[in-house]
Structure formats: C-alpha cells, structure tokens
C-alpha cells in the first residue's frame, strides 16, 4: 500500500465515497430477503475502491459506463441514490422508471451512461461516447468498467484496437476479481496475468495494481486522464480486487466449494474502507458516517413510498 500524498480533505472525500457505497450495498443486502427489491443484485462489496478512485479524477462532462455490477460506479460518479434504490424496488421514480433494475442503472445528469447486463457490451458503447467526446474537443473523457471475464469477449480486443487507432479519450478499467461467476480465471485464460499485455500490444498503455490500493489506482487514473484530456489517447488499468459476496445476491458463498474463505482473508485485512476510516479523525468520521446513514435511510424511504408504475407504461419508450 502506498502513501496517499493527498490532503486530509481529499482523503476524507475518498473515505466518504467508499463508505457510502459499502453501506448502501450492505443495506441493500439486508433488505433483499424481504423481497421488496425486485431485481437481481450484483454487489461490489470489497471492490468499491476502483470506482471511487477513478471517479474521483473525473468531473462534469465526463462519462462512465459499466456492467450489471455498477452500484459503486454509479454512486461514485454522483448518480442519484434515491433513484437507484427506487429502481431496485421497481418503482416509477426509479432511475429507469422501473424498466432497468439494478443491472441497468443510469443517471444522465451525472454522466452515468446506462449500464448493461450482457457482458462487455458497454466497452464499445463507451468508446462511442469517447468518439463523440473527441469530436467535441472539450477535453472530456470516458471511463468504462468491466470484469476479468469481459476481457475475454472479442469486442474488448476490437475496442482496444479502435481506441488506440483513433486516440480516443477512454480509460478502460478491468476490475479483475479473479472469477466470472464461479469460474476462476485460471480455467479461462492460458495466461491469466497478461490482460495488460493484450492492451499494450494494441497500443493502449496499461497499468496493473495488484493490492487494491485506492491511492495507487487514483494516482494512475489521475495521470492517464490528464494526458487523455490533451489528446493522449486511451489507457487501461487492471485493478486486482476480490468480490466478498456471491456473484449475484446478498450472501456470502464460501461454503459452495468453488472458492474458500482463506482467499478473502488478505483482502479483508487490507479493506480500503477500514484503512481510510483510520486516516480520518474521529469526529469527522462520525459525522460522515451519520450523514451516510441518514442519506441511505432517506433513499430507502423514498423507494418504499414511491408509486408503482402505471400498467400502460409497459409500452412507453420502446421508441424515442
């Protein structure tokens, strides 16, 4: 783990973002068995720091795109928490008005393009946003988040090549948690450690962070995004992380036999939420924590009290 080399205000901002996502997902998991949430949830608990680090160096006018596992990205980029909770409840006030659920979150005003549940599909779509950003010459960038499994889809290779060829302002972020559902990467790749070299060979500079260090990821992101805004072209960050819960659903699944609890131990020991909590002074941390709890409680209340969509809405918005 590296030193933050950031101001206390920066550290506490990162802490707030991390903790907010962690608690949002923990509360989601607590509500889940009640069946009020009408959507499969893919929790990012344990891997929040990637979204937090990258989104911290992005701003208004920049876009992010991701997969079905996008709660962290959405919240880190400033997506509305009540709208996402209401979406999971299937309510009319949800961010997709009850037509997307947890896997398809969107907040256009915050620069969150819709997320997609067909693995890797947002990789080229994000590059399309980056093409538009390049043509607009306003220095905006796009960041796309995807898993190690997504890096095996053909469109990952195709998009890297196109992005390099056209020097697109796009940051590829591979959140390598070592599994695609229950299949470990060693059963899927002859060379599990060579995701970065795939990118490099196509002309996309790549950086790997092995220990989940939020500051290290942020530093690299800051550096590559700064160059990208000036026309420096795409980059890739592979961040090794670990998914603490089951692939989909609220529970842990170390008893299922495809992986074992000893794998998560080192990751829990270096949990970035706890690590940053210890860097923020007690009074400030208590205030942040309580604000987060209030915000989440408000979001849950908003979702519970929101109206359900009218039946006729099933036909609206098929076409623009």
């Amino acid at each position: 783990m590296t030193e933050p080399n950031l101001s206390p205000a920066d550290v506490s901002r990162l802490y707030r973002s991390l903790k907010r996502i962690r608690r949002f997902e923990e509360v989601t998991a607590e509500i889940y068995p009640s069946d009020k949430i009408k959507s499969p949830v893919h929790l990012a608990i344990g891997q929040e720091q990637v979204s937090v680090a990258v989104c911290d160096v992005l701003g208004a006018g920049d876009w992010v795109g991701g997969s079905y596992r996008s709660h962290a990205m959405y919240l880190a980029k400033g997506g509305s928490m009540p709208a996402m909770m209401a979406e999971m409840y299937g309510k009319d006030t949800g961010c997709c008005r009850g037509k997307g659920g947890s896997m398809h979150v969107i907040d256009v005003s915050a620069g969150v393009m819709g997320s997609s549940a067909v693995v890797a599909t947002q990789i080229p779509v994000a590059a399309g946003y980056a093409l538009a950003a390049k043509r607009a010459h306003a220095g905006h960038v796009v960041a796309v988040f995807f898993g190690d499994g997504a890096s095996e889809e053909g469109c990952f290779y195709e998009t890297l090549n196109f992005a390099a060829l056209h020097a697109l302002p796009i940051l590829f972020i591979c959140e390598n948690n070592g599994y695609a559902i229950h299949e470990p990467i060693a059963k899927r790749r002859a060379k599990p450690d060579e995701i970065c070299s795939v990118a490099e060979s196509l002309g996309v500079p790549a950086h790997r962070v092995d220990d989940g260090d939020v500051f290290a990821i942020r530093r690299i992101a800051e550096d590559v995004v700064r160059r990208m805004r000036k026309g420096g072209g795409p980059a890739l960050i592979e961040a090794k992380v670990y998914r603490w819960r089951e692939h989909v659903g609220p529970n842990e699944d170390y008893d299922q036999g495809y992986r074992f609890e000893d794998e998560v131990v080192p990751w829990k020991r270096t949990d970035q939420v706890e690590r940053l909590a210890a860097m923020v002074d007690d009074a400030a941390r208590a205030r942040i924590d309580s604000e987060i709890e209030t915000e989440i409680a408000d979001a849950v209340r908003f979702a519970e009290e929101s109206p359900i969509p009218a039946a006729k809405e099933v036909f609206s918005d098929v076409y623009a």
Binding site: P124, G128, C155, T159
Partner: peptide, 18 residues
C-alpha cells in the same frame, strides 16, 4: 474501420447516444 463489426456497432451506438 477495422474488421470488427461487433465493436464498431457498439461504437456507433455509443456515439449516437452521445
């Protein structure tokens, strides 16, 4: 374009959305 119809379609879609 490169011979990459899948990704090129995604890029077209993303550009259109943007």
């Amino acid at each position: 374009t490169p011979l990459s119809e899948d990704a090129m379609t995604g890029i077209a879609i993303g550009a259109a959305m943007a």
